[in-house]
């Protein structure tokens, strides 16, 4: 390769690497702001901004969904399998909302530790399968859980 071409090639590589490094540094500095939501553990550790709206994301804990006496408000727990936060929400829940499902709620922390949400979005996973496959997976999972419980009970 001729000297001039080699020089241009190296210059381009230098630019790409340089921009890459600059971007990495910038993104690292803004890292927390780029997070779309905080997890219950992060909220528990005080990482979420106090007295300010933010987004909280996690899985809806099984059996935690309750409808409050006023009829329109629901309450449910959200967990990251380490810490749990209680959410209260008045409004329409997305189609995909159900216990065990991921959600991302926007709102603010109340003084009593309950997160009052003004928006609840569903976050689904990257798995795609037909209903019968999902059913048989769930069936196998339930059978496995039963087997483990039976073993623990000493049967």
């Amino acid at each position: 390769m001729r000297a001039a071409r080699k020089k241009r090639l190296y210059l381009i590589l230098l630019v790409v690497v340089g921009v890459g490094v600059a971007a990495a540094l910038a993104l690292n500095a803004f890292n927390q702001n780029l997070m779309f939501f905080y997890s219950p553990s992060e909220v528990n550790a005080g990482k979420a901004p106090p007295h300010h709206p933010f987004r909280l994301g996690g899985l809806v804990t099984d059996g935690s969904l309750k409808r409050l006496p006023n009829g329109l408000t629901v309450q449910f727990d959200v967990t990251d399998l380490q810490k749990t936060v209680s959410i209260q929400y008045t409004g329409i829940l997305p189609d995909l909302f159900r216990e065990g499902q991921g959600i991302v709620a926007h709102g603010q922390m109340r003084d009593d530790g309950v997160f009052v949400a003004d928006e609840v979005l569903a976050k689904h996973d990257e798995k795609y399968m037909p209903p019968e496959v999902a059913a048989s997976l769930k069936d196998a999972h339930d059978k496995g859980v039963t087997a483990v419980k039976a073993k623990e009970a000493g049967l």
């Binding site: 780029l34 997070m35 779309f36 939501f37 997890s39 991302v104 689904h124 990257e126």
Partner: peptide, 11 residues
């Protein structure tokens, strides 16, 4: 993968 996003991970 690097940040918490609403969009799910790669399938």
């Amino acid at each position: 993968e690097w940040w918490n996003t609403l969009h799910q991970g790669p399938t």
